[in-house]
Amino acid sequence: MSFEIDGPSNGTCITRVAGEDNQFLVNEAGVYQITYELNVQEAGRSFALFANGVLLAGTTYGENSQGLLTGRAIVTLFENDVVTLQNLNGEATLNGSVTGFGVVSASIIFEQWTTA
């Protein structure tokens, strides 16, 4: 899973791990809502969020057909946790264009609700 660009940020509670396109470093512990959307080409794919390589409960979402897959969860994260979004079925092809126009094929949003 690759997130190629960073969008707007209000602070530094979550930052990208240097040199990584799918690892996010938690700089401030707290409760976060994490939302991800993927434009998946293959049917039967499942994705989940992990912190430090451990599956975060309630973050696994799947799609029985190709198209937009959305996942959302509220999780508690700790300082220095590394969060990743992983495909549980191996590789997945994401749609990079629709009717010839380039589109965003993967996005992830971290919203901090409370601090620890």
Results as ranks from 00 to 15, higher is better:
Ser107Asp: 10
Arg45Leu: 08
Gln112Pro: 00
Asn52Trp: 05
Trp113Asn: 13
Val26Arg: 06
Val98Arg: 09
Leu88Val: 14
Thr114Leu: 09
Thr115Lys: 13
Asn95Val: 14
Gly90Tyr: 13
Thr35Ala: 13
Glu111His: 04
Thr114Arg: 11
Arg72Asn: 15
Gly19Trp: 02
Trp113Gln: 14
Val54Phe: 04
Leu85Arg: 00
Ile5Pro: 00
Leu94Ser: 02
Glu42His: 06
Thr60Gly: 05
Asn39His: 15
Thr12Gln: 08
Thr60Asp: 05
Thr12Ile: 07
Glu91Tyr: 09
Leu88Tyr: 13
Glu91Val: 11
Gly53Ser: 02
Val83Leu: 06
Leu56Thr: 04
Val17Asp: 11
Tyr36Arg: 04
Phe3Trp: 05
Asn80Tyr: 10
Asn95Gly: 15
Leu55Ala: 13
Cys13His: 14
Gly62Trp: 11
Ala106Phe: 08
Gly71Ile: 01
Ala116Lys: 03
Asn10Gly: 12
Gln41Trp: 11
Ala43Ser: 15
Thr59Asn: 05
Phe3His: 03
Val31Asn: 10
Thr76Ala: 14
Asp81Lys: 13
Ile109Phe: 14
Thr70Gln: 13
Arg16His: 03
Gly30Ala: 06
Gly30Leu: 05
Leu38Tyr: 15
Met1Asp: 00
Glu111Phe: 11
Glu28Cys: 08
Phe78Arg: 13
Ala57Asp: 07
Gly62Met: 07
Asn89Trp: 03
Tyr61Leu: 00
Gln41Arg: 12
Ser9Cys: 10
Val26His: 06
Arg45Ser: 08
Asp21Met: 08
Ala106Ile: 02
Leu68Met: 14
Gln33Pro: 00
Gly58Ala: 06
Gly7Lys: 09
Ile5Phe: 06
Gln41Lys: 14
Leu68Trp: 14
Glu4Thr: 08
Ile14Leu: 05
Gly71Phe: 00
Thr15Tyr: 11
Leu55Gln: 15
Glu79Lys: 15
Ser46Cys: 12
Thr84Phe: 07
Thr12Lys: 07
Phe3Leu: 04
Phe24Arg: 01
Gly62Leu: 03
Ala43Trp: 09
Leu56Cys: 05
Ala57Met: 02
Val104Tyr: 07
Glu111Ala: 13
Val104Arg: 10
Leu94His: 00
Thr115Pro: 05
Gly53Lys: 07
Thr84Asn: 09
Glu111Asp: 10
Gly44Met: 06
Glu79Phe: 08
Phe110Asn: 08
Gln23Asn: 02
Glu28Leu: 15
Thr70Tyr: 08
Leu49Met: 11
